[in-house]
Structure formats: C-alpha cells, structure tokens
C-alpha cells in the first residue's frame, strides 16, 4: 500500500472533522429529505389544498432533493479536503522530506488524492440509505441511484484533482482553497450564466422566428460542465447514443487527468517552495 495513503488516512481520521463532518452532513441531508417529503405531501406554506400526490412523485422528489443536497454539500466540502493537501506539507515544512525520499511525485499526489476522495466517498456511501428511501415510494430505480452516485463521484474526483492542482501551485492553503472554491462557483454558476447570456444574445440575433431546435450547440456547451445539469440529465431519457451526462462525465474526467498531470509536474518543480 502506498505509504502516503496510510499516513493521510490516519491523520484525517484523527482530526475532529473526521467524525464531526459526516455527522453534520447526514443531519443536513436528513433534514433536506424530511423537508422534501413534507413539502410534497403537506401544505407547508398555506398555498391551498394540494392534489393527493402519487407515491412515485414523492419518491422522485425525495430522490432529486437528496441528490442535489448531497451534491451541493460535497462540492462545498471537496476543496476543504483537497486544496490543503500539498500546501499543508509546504506550510509545515515536510514537503522537502517527502521529495527527497524515494516516493515519486505520482505517489505523493495519488496518496493525497485517494485520501481526499475516500473521505468524500465515505460521505457519499453513508448517504446511500437516505437516497434509497425513495425506493420505498417508487419512481426511482437502481439505474438512477447508480448513475447519480457515479456522476457525483466522478465530479468529486475532478474537484479533488483541481484542488490538489491549486495546492501544488500555491504556497498557502488559504489561497489554494479560495481558488478551488472559485472553480466550483465557475462550474456551478458561471456556466449557467454564460449559457443564459449566449442564449439571450442568440435570440436577439435570430429574432422572434428563432426556435430552440435551431439554437447552435455552442450555446448550451458550458452546461456540460455544470454539475447540477449533469445530474439532472440522468433523469432525462433522451435515447441519444451519447447522453448528456456521459459527455459531461468525459469532460470531468479530462479535467481531472489534466489537473493531475499539472499537479505532478508542479510537485517535481516545487523545490523553491520547500
């Protein structure tokens, strides 16, 4: 076993956040599910009498809300676990000892990456019973559960790789974490804003006759990098050979690979930072 992984996991589980964060995470997720259930079945805000909802509708609502809540929480936590991975070694002056040992840059990176991802994976797995609650009500199958879990995991892997890249580039955890969060915001918010603006601009150019089908592909292209849109696309059965989520997955994997390669290159050149 890569000694970096063993060291990282041991250190992670000794931190207070090793048990505080999973507890808080499950608490928030359970709250979101309870809210979704009562929102769908009760007239919480006094909007008037609700139609009697089908069990499957309730199931889908619970699943969607818990999947989105989970994604939001994990996207917020990914930089916390990854962006300090290498900067902490620089800050506590231990990186020189690692780089002059027989550990390769790839092993150091891999140890940090796996430790970050395993912890986020632990959160993901611990939430599976919450997501599976929807099974009792119907409307959601194994396909959705597996696809949502895989998409979320790949997205987290990508974010961890980006966080570690930032961590290899900057000297201080605070800078690395800030830039990692900026990347998360860019993917979740800016991609949506960019598509909305391009769509509006295209509508202006095309005039009133322009229909959505005629809209060029590049207008919606930024949404391939939007984690929420990717997750939503899992529920849309389009019949395409390459569904939306599959293209998104490939893009996120490409980002992860690029970030990993750049981080390892930075690690090899980080002698000035130690």
């Amino acid at each position: 076993m890569n000694p970096m992984i063993r060291k990282e996991l041991r250190q992670r589980m000794r931190e207070r956040r090793g048990w505080v964060l999973p507890s808080l995470y499950l608490l928030v997720l359970s709250g979101a599910v309870a809210f979704a259930y009562f929102f769908k079945t009760q007239d919480l805000f006094g909007f008037g009498e609700l139609n009697e909802p089908q069990g499957a509708e309730v199931g889908v609502t619970i699943f969607l809300v818990s999947a989105y809540a989970q994604l939001t929480l994990l996207l917020l936590l990914a930089p916390v676990f990854s962006a300090g991975g290498l900067t902490i070694e620089k800050e506590q002056r231990t990186l020189a000892a690692l780089l002059t040992s027989l550990l390769t840059s790839a092993q150091i990176w891999w140890g940090k990456f796996i430790a970050s991802l395993l912890f986020l994976g632990l959160l993901l797995v611990s939430a599976l019973p919450v997501l599976s609650l929807a099974f009792a009500l119907g409307g959601v199958g194994w396909r959705e559960l597996i696809l949502v879990s895989v998409c979320t995991l790949v997205m987290l892997a990508s974010m961890c790789a980006v966080g570690l890249y930032c961590s290899s580039y900057f000297r201080r955890s605070v800078h690395s974490t800030a830039v990692s969060y900026a990347v998360v915001i860019a993917l979740t918010v800016l991609t949506f804003v960019a598509t909305t603006l391009m769509s509006w601009y295209w509508q202006q150019e095309a005039g009133p006759g322009g229909t959505e089908e005629e809209m060029p592909d590049y207008v919606a292209a930024p949404l391939y990098l939007n984690p929420y849109v990717m997750l939503f696309s899992v529920f849309v059965r389009s019949g395409d050979d390459y569904p939306f989520w599959a293209i998104s997955l490939k893009l996120f994997l490409a980002i992860a690979c690029l970030a990993a390669a750049l981080a390892m290159r930075n690690l090899e050149r980080s002698g000035e930072q130690v």
Binding site: K7, R10, Q11, Q92, R93, T94, A96
Partner: peptide
Amino acid sequence: VPGLYQDM
C-alpha cells in the same frame, strides 16, 4: 527549517 508531522 525542517518540519514534522505533529499529529503522528
């Protein structure tokens, strides 16, 4: 300025 893993 060598570093140590203080939590090990």
